[in-house]
Amino acid sequence: MDRLTLRLSPDLARRFDAAAAGHGGRSRFLRSLMEGVAQAHLPVPENPPTGGKSSKLTLRLGELDVALLETEAASAGLSRTQWSVALIRGRLHNRPQFTRPEALAFIEVQRELRRIGVNVNQIARALNTAVMEGTVLDLETAQLAAFSDEVRAHIAGLHDAFNGNLAYWSAEL
């Protein structure tokens, strides 16, 4: 088996061990997390980096600010650096900044909506070619309209989720 080695702050190691305790220990939990990530199909970024180098930004914060930053980052499931980068990118690009679980959830919702859309199209095509009389056709058309309304409601929910994410990362708190 291959071995990976990484350095962690004592605080992160302590928090990870606490989370891993209920999942069979550090190694087992880390393997399961890595397996989940390896099996996920993550989207390709729409605007891939142009090959520019990244730059290091150093911040000096007081103890209270660091404590608040760590609390906020932990509540979002991010490290201090990840949270700070997401905050800066959110402000600079005015685009949602998702954690990996959020991104995976949105991908799954997109798949489901696409599947439902295909089914609705098949129903519409069948209705267009079917020879039905009065009441039966009205019932089928009503069912199709209900599906359409449901899809619109889910899309509105996604829109609200994106707006909520943008609001979280915006300057207005």
Rank of each mutant, 00 (worst) to 15 (best):
R100H: 09
L42F: 09
L64M: 10
G25K: 02
R115Y: 10
A145H: 07
A167Y: 05
V120R: 02
G134P: 13
L158W: 07
L64Y: 09
F29H: 13
G36P: 00
L8E: 00
R115E: 14
E35D: 14
E63M: 05
G52Y: 02
G157Q: 09
L68C: 10
A153W: 03
G90R: 04
V118F: 08
R152K: 12
L42N: 02
P45D: 06
K53R: 14
V120N: 04
A171Q: 12
F16G: 03
N128P: 12
G164W: 06
A146D: 14
S55I: 03
S32R: 11
A18I: 00
E108M: 06
K56I: 15
G117N: 01
G52F: 03
N94L: 11
G90V: 04
R7T: 15
P96R: 02
V136R: 11
T141A: 07
V136E: 15
D2G: 04
V120M: 06
P49Q: 08
E172H: 10
D138A: 15
L8Q: 01
L59N: 05
N128S: 09
V151N: 08
P10T: 07
I107W: 07
V85H: 06
T50L: 11
L173R: 15
P48N: 05
I116F: 12
V151L: 10
V109T: 13
T99A: 06
A86N: 15
A18F: 02
W83R: 04
Q110N: 11
L92D: 09
T5Q: 13
G52M: 07
R125M: 05
S84E: 04
A40G: 08
R7Y: 09
T5D: 11
R7L: 14
E35F: 03
L57E: 03
V109E: 13
L12I: 06
N94S: 12
G51P: 13
L166Q: 06
A19K: 09
D17A: 12
L64N: 13
A142Q: 09
S79I: 00
R111V: 04
S84N: 05
L127D: 10
A38W: 01
L166P: 05
R89C: 14
S54N: 10
I88L: 14
D149M: 03
S9Y: 03
T81Q: 14
D17T: 03
R152E: 15
R14T: 13
R28Q: 14
M1D: 09
A13R: 09
F98V: 06
L78H: 01
N165M: 02
F106Q: 13
S9R: 01
V151E: 11
E102F: 00
V37P: 00
G117S: 01
R115L: 08
Q39P: 00
N94T: 06
R60W: 04
W83P: 00
A76D: 07
R60C: 11
N128H: 10
S84K: 04
A74I: 01
H93Q: 12
K53W: 06
D160T: 03
E112R: 13
N165G: 05
N128V: 04
L68N: 12
K53D: 15
D65I: 02
H154M: 15
R95M: 08
T58V: 12
I155Y: 10
L59V: 05
A171S: 12
I123W: 05
Q143T: 06
A145I: 02
L59A: 03
A67E: 09
H154I: 13
A153G: 13
P45H: 01
P49M: 05
R152H: 12
